[in-house]
Design a protein around this nucleic acid. Structure first.
Lengths: 258, 258
DNA sequence: CGCCCCGTTGAGGAGAGTCAATGGCTGTGG
DNA sequence: CCACAGCCATTGACTCTCCTCAACGGGGCG
């Protein structure tokens, strides 16, 4: 089963003919290499992307060269649903690893939603969750120390990776340079390096070759980072109501008549 | 005309019977006083709020008391559309001035969307814009100095205020304490005070009684803050396509069949 | 082999935080 | 009408986290 279906299938049942179209899409997926731009600031893409494999970053550049990574795109993530609104992108998205991506013209995508409120539910859920991730990023940058930021980000990425792949891995291979982490967390590469070295020395994490990071003491790291172990989790539990319907479906089936 | 209809009317034409229901809602609006909580973290509200008058803040508290304001709610803003997804709120919303608020049970709200894809378009646009504001907040906190953060925030609030009220005011009355500004920008009240004093001395802003802030030299402030004068603007220009339809409408009318 | 990118480490500096005192304004109650 | 409390903005002195500049070293790749 594709990573994408796995992730969205956590929230709505996937026994639906509408999903079949994704098997088709996957056979047509495009490849992006590290550094390739999927979305460029200023574009009006009119396309929706589904990341099947690899990592990408969404970021903005200031005129003087400063870069802020807004968030990370992991396998199973969908973007840019907002491109459907005919807006110019105010940011760029770039692959940081080899990526397999399904690119769907927004017209076709809309037709897909038309055919299944299940799909519409799943995609809307995805958009709501992404906004929650943005808020968490704001809290992380605004009110946490360097060590807390790094620990919190690693825990989030670990959790999201497990959610996407279903693999309860202990070691997480993070394809991020110190500069990437710094630009995501509002720090400098030098300070990220120093702080992570200290975290290694104090037995919180360990690092192997090729960016492989292991969270050695998750309890302690979560405590030090004030990481809410329910983050991105309680939402899932509350999504399905007893009657089997959920709020998103109600909406998506409601937004129709003209 | 209500502030709310003015703001959303910027994006879709408002000659639509569906809007009538809002005149009804306004007669039933609720009042919140400064400090009153509209949404409490952990709640499942199942209600949508429309802020007709006043300011509110959306924030998260860390266990040790640190507070991060995620964004500000101004007149005309709509929230929490995501409550329709039956999710527990991961943050709180509190009035900071006297607020007039229309509170709509989500069931009724869904019915409203059902009756008009125009309305659905407007609300979805609003959600997309809010996400853009969150991204801007991340860049502001992550990669800007204290002076840039404050200047940038003031320019954004000024612009949003004008967009909501239609009043091209020069002076903006900001009902925020130094602590509020600090908690929004990842700073301390002391440093906000110092920085704003310096900004006053250098002729960027001036302050009158009761939180009245005047942006004295907008050009220079925008330059110093790297504020994009098109922010929240080019989007509006691109929303309507030549054929009079727009992407959001296409979607919202698309998300229907089951 | 040599280049380049990346991570690391050191030394010094700057921006923002902490602690604390002062003063203005407002509301309240004697 | 005044006294006092509470909240907020401001300012000073000092501290510390994080930044800047710089040098060094390892690994991948042409």
């Amino acid at each position: 089963m594709s990573v994408f279906k796995r992730r969205l299938g956590q929230y709505v049942s996937i026994h639906d003919e509408a999903w079949i179209i994704f098997d088709e899409l996957e056979r047509q997926e495009q490849v992006y290499l590290p550094g390739d731009e999927l979305i460029t600031a200023g574009d009006e893409t009119r396309r929706v992307f589904i990341l099947n494999e690899g990592w990408a970053i969404r970021y903005r550049l200031l005129e003087d060269g400063r870069r802020q990574i807004v968030n990370f795109m992991l396998p199973g993530d969908v973007f840019d649903l907002q491109s459907l609104a005919d807006l110019k992108a105010d940011h760029s998205v770039t692959a940081i690893t080899h990526c397999n991506v399904s690119v769907i013209p927004s017209g076709i995508f809309v037709d897909m939603l038309k055919d299944s409120s299940r799909l519409a539910s799943a995609f809307w859920w995805s958009a709501v969750q992404e906004e929650s991730i943005l808020r968490e990023q704001i809290v992380r940058i605004g009110r946490r120390s360097a060590r807390e930021r790094i620990g919190h980000l690693l825990l989030e990425l670990h959790r999201r990776y497990i959610g996407a792949t279903g693999l309860e891995v202990e070691k997480l291979t993070v394809p991020l340079t110190r500069a990437d982490i710094a630009d995501a967390l509002g720090l400098t590469p030098v300070h990220v390096s120093r702080t992570m070295s200290a975290m290694r020395r104090s037995g919180l994490i360990s690092e192997g070759r090729g960016g492989e990071i292991t969270i050695v003491d998750r309890e302690r790291l979560a405590r030090l980072s004030l990481f809410d172990m329910d983050y991105l989790h309680l939402k899932k539990l509350n999504l399905l109501r007893k009657d089997g319907k959920n709020g998103i479906q109600e909406i998506s089936s409601g937004v129709n008549a003209d």
